[in-house]
Amino acid sequence: MSENIIVKVEDLTMAYHDKPVLWDNDVNIVENSRTAIIGPNGAGKSTLLKGILGLQKTLSGTVEIMGKSVKQVYKKIAYIPQSNSVNWDFPTTALDVVLMGRYVHLGWIKRPKKKDIEIARNALHKMGMQDYAKRQISQLSGGQKQRVFIARAIAQNAEIYFMDEPLAGVDKNTEKVIIDFLKDSQKQGKTSIVIHHDLNTLADYFDHLVILNKRIIAQGKMSETLTQANLDAADMGGGFTIAAM
């Protein structure tokens, strides 16, 4: 059973001020998978995503997404950054934020059309946020904000989702909505790559796993990769035992 590799990273090295954060990493993301990336704090998980997406300079290595460079396929990629990159004081409504997901298809200068607004509304609806369309973004709760950002990714109509800790600080309900969405997308043939921090839910939520601590410790199918030895190798073993599962 051969699996298609949709994101192929080779020899990726990244550094901040020449202090290496990621060293010579090869990562393969399987098409149509739900892949989690785990690792201790400061392991370089966010940096890896930024490197793959070309948001941050790399020192060496190549990234191919669907066999092409990121610049060629960015329309097919939806990225949900860690929420601290957002300017919360900005005067904008939930619907407006979701509409931003359409910008990638509009190109410079052109304005969103009726059809785009329709798509944005549907996306909000999918996340159960239709009643909050007119709400100022800063007046939403943490979970609601996250749903809006997922809706923005839906509106973008991408093939691959990159999410940086989407479940951090959200309520149980939202967590379920997001995971259901990931499973649903998988059925539609999409791929998601999600930075995750909760080892207890890991195996339930995802089917593939990348363990990272500056270097790739292990990657592959969840069942084969989530082992005590691998967690220990990533300094994540403490307080959690696979045997319990």
């Binding site: 948001l55 990225y79 950054p81 990159s85 300017n87 410079w108």
Partner: peptide, 21 residues
């Protein structure tokens, strides 16, 4: 006026703006 949409997303979420090119 012309770059209204671009300014909007640039001010609201610079990282996301970069990710969509």
């Amino acid at each position: 006026f012309l770059f209204y949409k671009e300014f909007k997303i640039f001010v609201f979420d610079e990282v996301y703006a970069k990710s969509i090119g």
